[in-house]
């Protein structure tokens, strides 16, 4: 598992764990981010942060420290190979 802020531009991933607590957890859930939600990273802003993501058909900007609170599994091939550790 990696954090949402760690994936690359245009990379797609699936949410596996929501670490956010309280109001921000609700906000994420409001926009449809729960375990199993597919998210695609679009691009970072001109100053590197926040970053826009595609969530259920909507473009949502999220700051990197907030994206850190979302645990994801990337959908790319190499992440599907079981890790030895």
């Amino acid at each position: 598992m990696v954090r949402l802020n760690e994936i690359k531009d245009s990379e797609e991933c699936t949410v596996v764990s929501l670490f956010a607590k309280g109001i921000i957890r609700r906000r994420f859930q409001d926009i449809g981010i729960v375990e199993g939600t597919k998210i695609k990273r679009l691009r970072s802003g001109p100053l590197g942060d926040p970053t826009s993501y595609l969530v259920r058909g909507a473009v949502i900007a999220i700051r990197s420290e907030d994206a850190y609170l979302i645990g994801v599994e990337t959908n790319s091939w190499d992440s599907q190979i079981p890790r030895s550790d």
């Binding site: 921000i24 949502i60 900007a61």
Partner: peptide
């Protein structure tokens, strides 16, 4: 700073 989520419409 608290969190920030902003929807960017089409």
């Amino acid at each position: 700073p608290s969190f920030f989520t902003l929807e960017m419409p089409s």
